[in-house]
Design a protein around this nucleic acid. Structure first.
Lengths: 350, 350
DNA sequence: TTGTATGCGTTATCAT
DNA sequence: ATGATAACGCATACAA
């Protein structure tokens, strides 16, 4: 009845196996393993009756396809590597949240790799390859170009999100940092503030630098007129504490104290605001106007009501997964740079 | 020279393979695949010279062990399933952050499963089994008992974190919710506030309920004396917005308006505070004392300076991974309930 | 210390 | 529409 030939010579030998395999289902349902495989994959060309019977048998026996064995055979898993560095940056968390559910909904599984040490990034991406990942999303660090060849060789698509990215064969998705910087500039110019500043982490990040440069370019004419002044401000970390300490340092008073600061990202802006209000007794936007970037959840909260440039984490995730899926599906897309629109959100800090 | 027998009859046939396998390394280094396997695994009983030579050859050829094939052989992967629901709860994010790096440092990889629909949890945990995970950490939802048997049958250890959990064979780790609730109660009793409240999400969560019950038990004597009053308050979501709207609802004024509220978690407390201060013009702690639970990063920020009960995400993660590793290693631990100590952090909201 | 032989559970190919 | 068979790449028991 069972068509599969047993291993030669083991006749009735039958170990008390712990785990149910397709062979068990096949035997029980009176079909071949091939048929079981097809039924579990909802293959078109299987008869309705057989499929139903096999699937019922499978359920009864508690059979689940072994993805590892499946991946081995297909030389590709349904894992998607997610390269990130810690879960501390609010916007990245929101993005990852969207990304994870999108990936799941597409039938894939996220395999997270934390690269707190950027230098480690190359190794980590190579590690990912060990798992036969179907694709990789990089949300932190910049992979060395040589890593790219390893991925290209295996046709493993890579998407870089919000970074410079110079990886051949990979998609690079950014929000419109330039336009965002310009929007912030326009707002502050219109506000009547005179001593403008741009606050970013020391050394800068790719996104932050682009935003800052666009901001400066936009205010350049008025700067030349001498109508306003501009200062470049730096903090030691790209987070709340960084912004907080920068606030203490730059807002302590004096002639050139800025009265309007564009922050590279919301999280920094929140720290800055708190230092200004709670430590230095300044009013916002009275004494100090603040503009952020990202529109993270906290920016909307009553305590902050931060005016900011919104980039949509959900759209970013959607585009990421869409590109990935198309490439996994075999679409031969060239290297592309995709830009997502941003939106100015005026609240109460300017 | 090469000891491995080739497939019969394929002689010199050699396809232009894309991917480097142990056979390639073996051929190049003049050893067997077994030796390559042993060298890559740093097997003790391989000669120093051979290992060095093989590893160099491997590096040269760009060979990396195929974890999928390896997992297939060992019938166990080095993946650890992380069951969570979204990345919106700040404390859970901090916990996951610690957990992910701990898992990585232990040589495992986190496979994230998002179960936004709690009913889906059983299916998702079963899915995890398809990947031959070495272990599972559940940070959200409560798995149905029947799922447990599937895991037990395969000797896949499960750790439940901060939940009720009634899964046979699994570890359950909680912070000391009872003591935390008592600490909050003691503080509020000492503060001289008279109209106490406990704010939790409608329906409650396991942790929240325990905290609230401990809180009430502790204030019970004084309640009996009639010295103070107590109200149970509910919000619609266990987050900032939930706390915010609860604030608008319960603090609008009137005879019985609470003057001290213990919140089931920090995130709720933040929303409550903002509603009180920015929407209702109340002072904290003057008009309203607030105590949270968790000590998330935002609680330390200048805007809040929340008095709270701290549970340490890093310790929680450490213990989780340690238990998991021991069970994976074969230690036959019974069902255990582990409790992590909490600490009262007095800041400025009471 | 190293090599040989085998099987892990699945799917793709070819056959019927 | 379904069955037989051959890989997939590795690790391990057993030999030597």
């Amino acid at each position: 009845m069972s068509g599969d030939r047993q291993k030669p010579g083991n006749g009735a030998k039958k170990k008390a196996h712990q785990v149910v395999t397709s062979a068990d289902v096949a035997r029980e349902a009176g079909v071949s393993r091939s048929t079981v495989s097809r039924c579990m994959a909802d293959d078109e060309r299987i008869s309705e009756a057989t499929r139903k019977r096999v699937q019922e048998t499978a359920a009864q026996l508690g059979y689940h396809v072994n993805k590892i064995a499946s991946s081995m055979n297909r030389r590709k898993s349904d894992l998607i590597g997610l390269v990130t560095s810690g879960l501390t940056d609010p916007f990245r968390i929101e993005f990852l949240d969207c990304l994870i559910s999108q990936i799941q909904q597409s039938g894939y599984r996220p395999l997270v790799i934390d690269v707190s040490d950027p230098d480690q990034m190359g190794i980590s991406m190579l590690n990912l390859l060990q798992y036969q990942v179907a694709g990789v999303v990089v949300t932190s660090g910049s992979p060395s170009p040589e890593v790219g060849t390893h991925y290209l060789k295996r046709n493993v698509p890579v998407v870089l999100v919000n970074r410079a990215g110079r990886l051949e064969g990979a998609d690079v998705i950014n929000c419109d940092n330039v336009h965002g910087g310009e929007l912030a500039a326009d707002m502050l110019l219109k506000s009547g503030k005179k001593r403008l500043g741009f606050l970013n982490v020391r050394g800068g990040t790719y996104s932050g630098n682009v935003r800052g440069e666009a901001f400066v370019s936009r205010i350049a004419p008025r700067l030349a007129d001498g109508e306003i002044s501009f200062t470049s401000l730096v903090c030691d970390s790209a987070d709340y504490d960084g912004g907080f300490h920068a606030g203490l340092k730059y807002l302590a008073g004096g002639e050139n104290t800025p009265d309007a600061i564009f922050c590279a990202k919301d999280h920094i802006a929140l720290g800055l605001m708190d230092a200004a209000r709670f430590e230095l007794g300044l009013t916002v936007p009275g004494d100090l106007a603040v503009i952020g970037f990202d529109d993270i959840a906290a920016a909307r909260q009553g305590a902050y009501q931060l005016t900011t440039v919104r980039q949509r984490a959900d759209q970013l995730a959607e585009m990421t997964v869409e590109r990935l899926r198309r490439r996994i599906g075999g679409d031969d897309l060239g290297d592309e740079r995709l830009v997502l629109p941003v939106e100015f959100i005026r609240r109460q800090t300017v």
